[in-house]
Design a protein around this nucleic acid. Structure first.
Length: 334
DNA sequence: AAAGCGGGGAT
DNA sequence: ATCCCAGCTTT
């Protein structure tokens, strides 16, 4: 892996935050851009939030980005720029949980803390034939215990990395390479032919369907955008005026009347509705989103748009948007 | 303890 | 389609 031998806690922290629930192949280019843009924690701490989000754009789980910036500021201001150097203090950082604290502690300081991530659950579940679910408290306690017992105390950093490498390249979720695995002789799951069933997860996520109609309000060549708040998907990203419905609504005059006139006090005679886009869909882990985009050309400033910002088409690219909004914008420009 | 949070790649 | 990814925070 590219970061082997790295012991700068800032770089390790940054890479671990980026790689939470994210494949190395997907996250690595982001890591390199972050390091190039913010080579040290002071530069990151002093960065503008919108710039950091723009750099994170497309990577998902945007609260990681928010916490990243918060923690950088915290370390610079409250800790004089000195990175915490032990597990307990690392764990106190926003966005740093048990896995990331163990990773930083062992990679940067070679402290004896075992990482427990998706790879580790899988390797140990199979090797020891553990059928306890990994996503229950009981299972978590057992897997943490096993991980600690197996840890090479004096070589924690390299051991942790080797274990995860093994999980990522040999003991893979699908089509593991049991045939060439050096652990085959002593692997419980291999002996019992249960490799394909392990590890066991209980949670079944059911997808919620949501319908987003975005209205692009245009005035004097500028578009109205708004920052999404906390408590929903895409917190901290920008969007256009959003109307969410629980089903597809026919885009007729009555709908425009309701949205533009009833909600926003805009006279329908004062606007030109130029486009209703095709339907876009986006699959999240827990939601299925359906989008439509409408472009509304205004003649005067509606009162409802005092909050938010009017930006030129050119300046749109300075703001971070959800993937589908960017897809729509890119197709507009084609 | 359970739910919520993105986007991409492999199967 | 389904699974899962070098998980964490909030409720």
């Amino acid at each position: 892996m590219p970061w082997k031998g790295e012991n700068d806690p800032y770089k390790i922290w940054l890479s671990e935050i980026i790689l939470q629930q994210t494949r190395v192949e997907q996250g690595w280019a982001y890591y390199e851009r972050f390091i190039r843009t913010y080579p040290n924690i002071h530069l990151l701490a002093n960065a503008k939030e919108n710039e950091v989000f723009k750099l994170w754009e497309g990577l998902g789980y945007y609260n990681r980005c928010r916490n990243l910036l918060f923690t950088a500021k915290y370390i610079v201001k409250a800790l004089n720029g000195i990175f915490p150097n032990n597990y307990e203090d690392l764990l106190k950082l926003k966005g740093v949980g048990p896995y990331t604290a163990a990773a930083i502690a062992s990679f940067a300081y070679n402290l004896p803390h075992a990482v427990v991530d998706g790879n580790v659950f899988r390797v140990f579940a199979r090797y020891y034939g553990i059928h306890l679910p990994t996503d229950t408290k009981e299972g978590l306690v057992i897997f943490n215990k096993i991980a600690s017992e197996n840890l090479a105390f004096k070589k924690a950093g390299i051991y942790n990395q080797a274990l995860m490498d093994f999980g990522a390249t040999v003991c893979k979720p699908m089509s593991p390479l049991c045939g060439s695995c050096v652990m085959q002789n002593t692997c419980a799951a291999f002996a019992q032919n249960t490799v394909g069933q392990l590890p066991i997860k209980l949670k079944v996520i059911q997808k919620k369907k949501r319908y987003f109609d975005y209205f692009l309000f245009k005035l004097n060549g500028k578009l109205w955008i708004q920052k999404r708040g906390q408590g929903d998907i895409w917190a901290g990203l920008y969007q256009f005026y959003l109307v969410e419905n629980d089903k597809i609504v026919t885009a007729d005059n009555a709908y425009y009347q309701q949205v533009l006139n009833n909600q926003l006090m805009i006279d329908l005679k004062e606007v030109k509705i130029t486009k209703e886009s095709k339907i876009y869909q986006q699959q999240l882990t827990h939601q299925l989103l359906t989008f439509r985009f409408f472009t509304i050309e205004l003649k005067k400033m509606p009162k409802a748009f005092e909050k938010g910002a009017w930006v030129s088409a050119k300046n749109l690219q300075k703001f971070a948007f959800p993937k589908t909004i960017n897809s729509f914008l890119n197709e507009l420009n084609d």
